[in-house]
C-alpha cells in the first residue's frame, strides 16, 4: 500500500529564517516568491537622477561610503522601506548619514526645509 504523503507547500514562510533576517535581505524569501517581476521600463525622474548624482559626488569626495548609504537604507523600517521608491530610500539614508556625521545639524535641516 502506498504511503500517503501530504504534499509539501512549495514556498512556506516556515522555511524562512524570517524571525532573524533583516528585511532588506530578500534572497528566496517566500512572500516574494509568487510575485511577478515588473519587466516594463520605468524612466528615471529628474529627482532620481539628482539623488543618484549627489550620492556619487559624496562617495567620490569620500564624504560618505556606499556602505554607509546601504546601512542607512537598511535602517529604514520595513513598511517604509517597501513604501518608498528606490531613490527616496537613498535620500533618506543620505540625510541620516549627514546628520550622524554632524556635517549638517537637525536645526539647519529644519530651517532649510522651512525656507522652501
Amino acid at each position: 500500500m502506498a504511503i500517503y504523503r501530504r504534499p509539501r507547500p512549495r514556498y512556506s514562510p516556515a522555511m524562512d529564517n524570517d524571525d532573524k533576517r533583516s528585511h532588506h535581505d530578500m534572497g528566496g524569501v517566500s512572500k516574494f516568491m509568487c510575485e511577478a517581476v515588473d519587466i516594463e521600463p520605468h524612466a528615471l525622474t529628474a529627482f532620481d537622477r539628482d539623488v543618484d548624482a549627489l550620492r556619487g559626488v559624496l562617495g567620490a569626495k569620500q564624504i560618505m561610503t556606499v556602505d554607509e548609504l546601504r546601512r542607512g537604507i537598511e535602517a529604514i523600517p520595513e513598511a517604509e522601506y517597501h513604501r518608498l521608491t528606490y531613490y527616496r530610500r537613498w535620500i533618506r539614508s543620505i540625510t541620516d548619514n549627514l546628520l550622524r556625521k554632524g556635517l549638517i545639524t537637525e536645526a539647519e535641516l529644519r530651517a532649510a526645509l522651512d525656507a522652501k
Binding site: 529564517n17 532573524k20 533576517r21 533583516s22 535581505d25 534572497g27 528566496g28 556602505d67 546601504r70 546601512r71 537598511e74 535602517a75
Partner: peptide, 18 residues
C-alpha cells in the same frame, strides 16, 4: 551567526546561506 538579532549592523552575508 545572526548579528542582526543583536543590534544595528551591516552585513553582506545573505541570510539564506548561513
Amino acid at each position: 551567526d545572526w548579528p542582526e538579532t543583536r543590534g544595528p549592523v551591516h552585513i553582506r552575508t545573505p541570510h539564506y546561506l548561513r
